[in-house]
Design a binder for these strands. Structure first.
Lengths: 344, 344
DNA sequence: TATTAGCACTCACAATAATCGAGTGCTAAC
DNA sequence: GTTAGCACTCGATTATTGTGAGTGCTAATA
């Protein structure tokens, strides 16, 4: 859908204004704000056209107009240009990361913190995942009697704990031996290909030990399949200040979103073209609870491999420009620091 | 403060009624509800007395009366008796725990789930802590280059991860050796007593290894000092249904409480006499955000040693009877299952 | 033909007034 | 000591009225 230049300009001003004020925009106000030198009457005609085209609606006759989701989509696709962040803010962010890049956990929470602070919306950050594919090393630690902890270490140097109860008691020595067996195996192939048959071929195992390995492997596989990557969220209460969230039900929806970590995680890591910054507006979201929100996400990488995701949840009346700029810069920072952190 | 029997009865009925309805209680309604065969006028006189004594207030002249915090305190101390839960509910809870007692984490989240479901308030559960004192075993796992993971295992068979970056690269073999040194030490004493001098006395270490141990020990001590016990919370949105929480600011307070895990954890584990069920009403709470809430907590033990805590946050107009009964029973269940889980 | 001034009309919102009713305190009788 | 009766209070609800920012339409204008 192509709009003529004037319509485009008018739409832009309306959207910008509504994003700032949350108030329906009328022709008179608009005439002052946009310096096209056209009268309210003309603007009224244009607005009527834009309404017919589906870009605007009136909350009630005789009020100003507000943008539809279609308008936001048009704005994001055709009008908005992602600006570079101000130099000062950039250096601020950069310094902040330098102060928090000692460990993975703190880096993640710091990212969430910065995101919510800079955007004034709710931030969500997904920590890197530990999966079947990047599992490099497994250390089995005896906990007590027949309970053991399996520590899975990835190629990138992340770790994940898996606790299980086995059929037999495992002491420190046995735990060490079991670890060695599994790690010997991991030298040649990935975990998901470790089948029952392959286990039986391992020579050095007593029947009891073999039985234990047979118990352990499925547990490992299962735990690594589950997308249990940590989700950090901050600034939940930021949204409370916006007029559209004075309704308790909206807040309930928001809390439900943030608590359904599984869903959130899947949504943020699913591919969507080759977009670096991914914008989902209102009902473009599959999740029912997100129908009244917009969510802008991005991902961070290590060696070209997607490690995790992060983003911002806000009203559909979101400051798409600013959030996009912020995400864009944070993405670079995160890529930089994660690689420093994990590969150094 | 002692009240005569009639006053006590009247106060009780008012509190019960207000807890149910959240509406100020008037003399007429009351006269019907409590079967003492006294007229509204008499009740009015008694209510005037109770107001003078500080147990009741009127939101405005010519409305019914509502209980003060002092009234709730009196109710909790002098009137309420903790009932045994219904047989059916008890067996339900018990079965639920049997289905979820395979691992510690799930048991904790399940507890939170049950609590919030049975009470309709917000539930908080503190997982057992790993500290200097119960630390039995430390396993050092090489992550990547000079980053290692220290897995601390307690006497009770719980584990905690601590990630650190050291000054030198540590490979698998070295990690094993360092683990052995520390564990050899832990056989005789507790971690907090491992001083610099003692480290220097260990014979089998090369200078480089000694240096690493010198780095590791403070990290361990520090991490175990921090009260970083996991906090599970559920049923945040339960409170939204109560009329006193239609105000967004109240909700903000609640969210702040639940997010300040450190504070919550300290508050719940601090001793308070020998009370099994601890009730804090409104401003009895030190935390500013909790001034408008009541919180009822309890603890669970293993071998007489406090392991963790759990509780419920709700309006001061809370159903103290029911919550106390539930906590009481959950406490027993938790004691039972935790000991099964950790010691079996 | 596109633009604009003018005008009658609409309708949410705020302010004001009227009504209602559950509740009170007080007094006098039981 | 208890209670019936009564005048009174005051928040909540509903009705009424303005107000003003906005509209669409029409006719004049460039």
């Amino acid at each position: 859908m192509e709009l003529n230049i004037r319509k485009k300009k008018i739409l832009e001003v309306i959207i910008r204004d509504y994003i700032n004020t949350a108030e329906p925009v009328g022709s008179r106000t608009l005439s002052k704000r946009c310096n096209l030198g056209i009268s309210p009457a003309t603007i009224r005609n244009e607005m009527a056209d834009l309404e017919e085209l589906g870009f605007l609606v009136q909350p009630h006759t005789s009020s100003g107009r507000i943008p539809t989701q279609q308008a936001y989509r048009y704005y994001v696709d055709e009008i908005m240009e992602i600006q570079k962040l101000e130099k000062m803010i950039r250096t601020d962010i950069h310094r902040g990361f330098l102060d928090h890049n000692t460990e993975l956990g703190p880096t993640m929470s710091h990212t969430a913190q910065v995101l919510s602070q800079l955007t004034n919306y709710t931030a969500v950050v997904l920590a890197p995942r530990v999966t079947n594919f990047n599992c490099k090393h497994v250390q089995i630690v005896s906990l007590i009697k027949n309970r053991v902890l399996m520590v899975v270490v990835t190629q990138e140097g992340m770790a994940k704990n898996i606790e299980v109860t086995l059929s037999q008691e495992v002491d420190t020595m046995l735990a060490l031996k079991l670890s060695n067996v599994i790690n010997g195996f991991l030298k040649n192939t990935i975990l998901s290909e470790m089948s029952s048959d392959l286990i039986d071929q391992i020579q050095e195992l007593s029947p009891a030990e073999s039985k234990l390995i047979h118990e352990i492997i499925p547990h490992l596989k299962k735990a690594l399949m589950e997308d249990a990557s940590e989700v950090h969220s901050t600034g939940l209460t930021n949204l409370f200040n916006y007029p559209e969230f004075s309704d308790v039900n909206k807040i309930k929806q928001l809390i439900n979103i943030v608590q359904e970590k599984q869903v959130l995680s899947e949504m943020m890591t699913s591919k969507d073209g080759n977009q670096v910054i991914r914008i989902k507006i209102g009902s473009e979201n599959d999740n029912e609870n997100l129908k009244d929100f917009s969510i802008i996400t991005s991902t961070y990488e290590l060696d070209g491999e997607m490690m995790g995701a992060f983003g911002v949840i806000g009203p559909t009346r979101m400051n798409y420009d600013n959030v996009s700029s912020v995400l864009n810069y944070i993405r670079n920072e995160l890529n930089l620091h994660i690689s420093n952190l994990l590969m150094k």
